[in-house]
Computed example of a mutant assay.
Amino acid sequence: MTSAGTDVVAQLRAAGCVFAEDEARLLIAAAAETGAALPALVAQRVTGTPLEHVLGWAEFHGLRVAVSPGVFVPRQRTAFLVDQAVELIRTRTGHPMVVDLCCGSGALGLAAATIVAAEGRTVTLAAADLDPVAVECARRNLTPLGAPVYQGDLFEALPEELRGCIDILLCNTPYVPSAMIAQMPPEAREHEPRTALDGGSDGLDTFRRVATDSSAWLASGGHLLVESSEEQAPLALAILSKHGLAGRVAESGEHYATVVIGTRP
Rank of each mutant, 00 (worst) to 15 (best):
T2P: 13
S3N: 13
A4D: 14
G5P: 13
T6Y: 11
V9K: 05
C17W: 13
A20K: 04
A24D: 06
R25E: 15
R25F: 11
L27E: 04
I28W: 02
A30P: 03
A30G: 06
A36G: 03
L38E: 09
A40I: 07
L41C: 08
T47E: 14
H53F: 03
W57P: 00
W57H: 15
W57I: 01
F60V: 11
G62W: 07
R64Y: 05
G70P: 04
Q76E: 15
F80W: 09
V86R: 07
E87Y: 00
R90H: 11
M97S: 03
V99Q: 03
C103R: 02
S105Q: 06
G109N: 09
A113C: 09
A126W: 02
A127R: 05
R139S: 14
R140N: 11
N141K: 08
L142D: 03
P144T: 12
G146T: 09
V149N: 01
V149T: 08
L158D: 02
G164R: 02
I168D: 00
L170I: 08
T173I: 14
Y175V: 07
M180C: 12
A182I: 12
P186F: 07
P186M: 03
E187D: 14
E187G: 12
A188Y: 05
H191Q: 06
R194S: 14
R194V: 14
A196T: 12
S201Y: 12
S201L: 15
T206W: 01
R208H: 10
R208S: 06
S215P: 04
A216M: 08
L218W: 02
G221P: 09
G221S: 09
G222L: 09
V226P: 01
E231V: 13
A233Y: 00
P234K: 02
P234C: 04
L237E: 10
L237G: 13
A238V: 04
S241H: 15
H243D: 10
G244N: 10
G244P: 08
G247S: 08
R248A: 01
T258L: 01
P265K: 00
